[in-house]
Design a protein around this nucleic acid. Structure first.
Length: 446
RNA sequence: UCCUCAUUAGCUCAAUUGGCAGAGCGAGCGGCUGUUAACCGCUAGGUUCUUGGUUCGAGUCCAAGAUGAGGAGCCA
């Protein structure tokens, strides 16, 4: 008889098959016992009738503790009552064997848990359907990212994680001793290296973990997170936005194709995701500020109005992004931020030096920034003066300035946060659930 | 770093004005042939975050501390 995955049960209707997995839940009903089994590919109900089995086996099933690892053989039945993921099919048990009976003190009840308890038990929390669903979506997001970039002429270039100095000069970095060379720092971005790579490969991307030692304690921040950073030569700001909207649309499309049961199990509003197709709306920073002021004036709640206080030149806070994105049912591009609130390497707007050619992509439903990008500065003299203005060590950027001396071209790139994207697509409250083992300012265990 | 909030059974929470420490889930035992967070009966399970103070009496009031959370700043 065939060894099958739960996700394939529907292909074996009325056949006897064997599955290998773990007991997620057990419900006794006298002469009937229900086991909800998970095997990594999904969750399926297995049903034991006392009359179909010898007494010893039925008794063993009736008493099997949650999380025990088991091998079950049975006949696949279509039954609308059968719970599971994808569900709708169940196994009528004919043979049952235990690989290991779990201890009966499994700490995670099949209930809501507080954040602290859930995170202390992350190694076990991962077994629950909600976490399984979110991390399956994450895997699809990652493969869709690579697929789209690989298919659209971008070459993967791995950039270093150990770096000699602050790349952007703004954020606090994790520091480590590096032999006799002094300090090294965990990378906060691979962008500067990618700017070198494009002069050999044209269009490139790096994709890996990124580290920020900022003491950010919000639902949108991790100290270790995954970021994909495409960078392309001969691409200006307008073309960059076109790349981003095609890229994001493709990721959403793949998730809708591959993870519909997962999204449904999470209670995600799928129709909201079906609207995510290029083109996305574009709004200038100037207009966005005007819009926020308008929304602030219309607010009756004085507390909310205070949060929405904004003047031209300020960066957006979380509240600003929320009210702005609520005006759209797709992600929205905000471009042309004030030079002062952005990184040193962004190309100035023609005839408006106080504005730079930057663009952020804000996800709808209040999720906010998932992408930050810009057209990069191509003039070596201006770049050098910016490095001085930001108090950055010129010596560390010598190679970076070289790029502007030998065949400089207009070029652009962006960084997309994987966990923020996954949290948005799954409708998850906090991005810590969008990575298997989150690292936050107060947590490096487990 | 700052602001705000939280901490009671393994988990999620309740406990009136300061007056005997409680429930549901989970666990164990028993019952039930379709459970969907099943249901019914019984049993076990407590340093009420810590230290000090006020009081006849503190889970509750006061002080200090610990731990955690999510907001600001910063960013993806």
């Amino acid at each position: 008889m065939a060894l099958v995955k739960i996700s394939d049960l529907s292909k074996h209707e009325d056949k006897e098959v064997t599955i290998q997995g773990w007991v997620y839940k057990r419900t006794g009903k006298g002469k009937l016992s229900f086991l909800l089994i998970r095997d990594g590919s999904g969750f399926a109900q297995c049903v034991a009738f006392k009359g179909d089995l010898d007494e010893e086996t039925f008794d063993e099933i009736k008493r099997i503790p949650q999380e025990s690892s088991v091998v079950i053989t049975g006949t696949v039945r279509k039954d609308e009552r059968a719970p599971g993921l994808p569900g709708g099919y169940e196994l009528g048990i004919s043979a049952f064997s235990v690989v290991q009976a779990a201890q009966d003190d499994y700490p995670m009840a099949l209930k809501e848990h507080g954040v602290d308890f859930a995170l202390d038990n992350r190694h076990l929390w991962l077994r629950m359907p909600s976490q399984w669903a979110i991390l399956r979506v994450r895997a699809t997001v990652v493969s869709a990212i690579r697929e789209w970039l690989d298919d659209n002429g971008f070459t993967l270039m791995d950039t270093p994680i150990l770096t000699p100095a602050a790349a952007e000069g703004t954020t606090t970095l994790f520091e480590t001793e590096y032999f006799d060379e002094g300090k090294a720092y965990l990378a906060q971005t691979g962008q500067l290296y990618n700017e070198a790579n494009i002069f050999s490969f044209g269009k490139v991307y790096c994709f890996g973990p990124t580290f920020r030692a900022e003491k950010s304690k919000t639902r949108r921040h991790l100290t270790e997170f995954w970021m994909v950073e495409p960078e392309a030569a001969f691409v200006d700001l307008e073309e960059l936005m076109e790349i981003e909207e095609q890229f994001v649309s493709h990721i959403v499309k793949r998730v809708l194709e591959k993870n519909r049961p997962e999204l449904e199990s999470l209670g995600r509003d799928i129709s909201a995701l079906e609207k995510i197709q290029a083109p996305f709306p574009r709004i200038s920073y100037d207009d966005a500020v005007a819009k926020i002021k308008e929304l602030q004036a219309a607010t009756e709640d004085p507390e909310e109005a205070a949060f929405l206080e904004i003047e031209w030149g300020m960066d957006f806070g979380g509240r600003h992004e929320t009210v702005l994105t609520q005006q759209f049912d797709k992600p929205v591009f905000v471009y042309g931020y004030p030079t002062e609130v952005k990184a040193f390497y962004m190309e100035p707007w023609p005839d408006r030096p106080e504005v730079c050619k930057s663009v952020d992509l804000l996800a709808p439903e209040g999720y906010g920034e998932i992408i930050g990008g810009s057209e990069r500065m191509s003039d070596p003299d201006l770049l050098l003066s910016r490095i001085h203005e930001h108090g950055l060590p010129e010596e560390a950027f010598k190679w970076y300035l070289d790029l502007r001396r030998y065949g400089s071209v207009p070029h652009s790139g962006f960084g997309m946060g994987v966990e923020r994207t996954v949290a948005w697509l799954c409708g998850t409250e906090h991005i810590r659930e969008a990575i298997p083992f989150p690292r936050t300012i107060k947590r490096v265990y487990p």
